[in-house]
Amino acid sequence: MDATIFNQDHILLDTTSTTQAEAFQAIADLAASLGYVSDAKAYAAGLKEREAGATTGFKDGFAIPHSNDASILKPGLFLVKFSHPIEWAALDNQPVTVALALTIPKDGGKEHLKLLSQIARKLMNAEFRTTIQNETDAVALASSVNRIQ
């Protein structure tokens, strides 16, 4: 994994969010503080808009919220684990505890976008999901994600 897309700083253990809107804001604040988006509000709105199209929550407490709105500066992946399970209208109707959020720039380099799509594919791997779900240590989490090629 390319360190400019994901590194240990991109992991957040969110103990406060209880709603999807708060979760989006937490994700957006993280992405903005690391300089991946120019405007946290706009990115949060982008996440909400994408969610309105169809849910990004899928199985076993995982969601992959993402946006390609104009506020996004560079491609990135953010791993946020929620202490409070969040209602997400996921495909299996389970609340979400892990979000792998993506920032997708409109004119991102092909290699970087390809990496983001590899992450999406990896999420369909049940073993990978179990590892991420059970691991609490940031260093170990980071190394699991980093193994994605």
């Binding site: 899928f58 993506l102 983001l116 799509s117 594919r121």
Partner: peptide, 12 residues
């Protein structure tokens, strides 16, 4: 829509 996430998850 975004062409990054669900395209590939569905393919997988």
């Amino acid at each position: 829509a975004a062409g990054i996430a669900h395209t590939y998850m569905a393919a997988e």
